[in-house]
Design a protein around this nucleic acid. Sequence first.
DNA 1: AGTATATTTCGCTATATGACAAAATAACGA
DNA 2: TCGTTATTTTGTCATATAGCGAAATATACT
Lengths: 134, 134
Amino acid sequence: MYAADNGLNRLTRLAKALSDPNRVRALAALREGELCVCQLIDLLELAPSTVSKHMAIVKMAGLVESRKDSRWVYYRLAGAPHDEAAGQLLKGAFEVVKYDPQIAADNTEMQRIRAGYADERCSAQRDRTASSHG
Amino acid sequence: MYAADNGLNRLTRLAKALSDPNRVRALAALREGELCVCQLIDLLELAPSTVSKHMAIVKMAGLVESRKDSRWVYYRLAGAPHDEAAGQLLKGAFEVVKYDPQIAADNTEMQRIRAGYADERCSAQRDRTASSHG
DNA sequence: AGTATATTTCGCTATATGACAAAATAACGA
DNA sequence: TCGTTATTTTGTCATATAGCGAAATATACT
């Protein structure tokens, strides 16, 4: 696993992962369940390459895991068994942003994105019959 | 107070504060009680200006408070009443570094620094009779 | 095979960060 | 008042980071 070394290095990696608002927005969105990169692109409105790098950073920090389903890569929050301390840290982070208006807006927006609103990018939303997507 | 605004901004400031190992070392040392800047300089072995800036960053994040006693500026961890969420975050951070060898070494070293070992810089350690210093 | 879609890697630019030394402040002591 | 000590501010440098677009990869569909 990525998260094995020295406590200080690990904390540094975790804190850096949490020190960018767009990464925190992505993590917050993942609380409702896994998302593919294209959905996160829709939410954050950043270039695909940028989102990809952000997700690589939170993954290296051990905060998320990913799986690949055909064309899509799905990210989800890392499971509890992984690391108690990191879980506590993340919980504290979510607590801090609990009432943040951007996070609230993202929540609403994510519902639309998950529902698969028509005429948007990330055609995965509507092209797949009724699969696990979303 | 510094810590009043938007949750995402606040979290970003907190996470950045925790994303440098030297700042975390300083915060960990402060768990045992307040320290003046010169003591932190002895511990971290960084230039005074560097330590000063580090402490300004953790103060802006709301993690520490300071008081000035004549020539010296003492920093301490911010009191509990300030912010439940930030406290939880910091607690998680300390949990992550619980078994870090550098933090353990710092603990030992801090005992010596607090005791006021002879022939070191930060003369405050020994010049003052038996004052609150340390 | 060839096209389209999803994601990542690479190359680049602008800005942020951490380090130091030197200068500026603040406060004490002779 | 002058010199000393503690701290902060300022200027500078090297490196890290976040962003994008273009190119590379991976997979599906025709």
